[in-house]
C-alpha cells in the first residue's frame, strides 16, 4: 500500500479510499517523551490542514494536521493507556487515526518516501 508524507512530518498510508495517519519517526524524535495524545472523534470531518490531533510531550503540545480531507473512521485505542507508542513505533503501532478520503487527488501534493527522507536529511 502506498505511503505518503507531508512536509509537516505526518504520514498517510492509503488502501483504496481508506487511509491510516500517523507522525514520522523524525517528528517523535523532536517531541521527546510523549505523555498524552488527543485523537479526533470518530465521524469527525477533516479538511486538509486542519488540526486534527494534539500530541503533548514533556517539551510542548503540538498539533497534528490532517494530511488530506476526509472522515475519521477509527482512532488508535491503544494510545489512551500507552501514548508512548507514538515514540516507540510512530510509523506502526503508534498510528493515530483511520479515515475515508474525501478527494484522493489531494494525495498528489504529498511527498513519497524518498522525497521525505531528503527533506529530513536537509534539516
Amino acid at each position: 500500500m502506498p505511503r505518503y508524507f507531508t512536509r509537516d512530518h505526518e504520514w498517510i498510508e492509503v488502501d483504496g479510499a481508506a487511509a491510516r495517519v500517523g507522525i514520522t519517526h523524525y517528528a517523535q524524535s523532536q517531541l521527546g517523551d510523549i505523555t498524552f495524545v488527543e485523537v479526533p472523534a470518530v465521524g469527525a470531518v477533516l479538511v486538509r490542514g486542519d488540526s486534527a490531533s494534539v500530541i503533548d510531550s514533556v517539551k510542548a503540545a503540538s498539533d497534528v494536521y490532517a494530511p488530506v480531507g476526509g472522515t475519521v473512521t477509527a482512532i488508535n485505542p491503544a494510545l489512551e493507556e500507552a501514548p508512548d507508542l507514538v515514540n516507540s513505533a510512530p510509523e506502526g503501532d503508534g498510528w493515530l487515526w483511520d479515515m475515508d478520503l474525501a478527494d484522493p487527488t489531494e494525495l498528489d501534493d504529498l511527498l513519497d518516501a524518498q522525497a521525505y527522507a531528503d527533506l529530513v536529511a536537509a534539516l
Binding site: 509537516d8 512530518h9 507522525i23 517528528a27 503540538s62 534539516l123
Partner: peptide, 8 residues
C-alpha cells in the same frame, strides 16, 4: 505537525 525543532 507543529514542531519545535531543536536548534542545531
Amino acid at each position: 505537525m507543529s514542531l519545535t525543532h531543536d536548534t542545531d
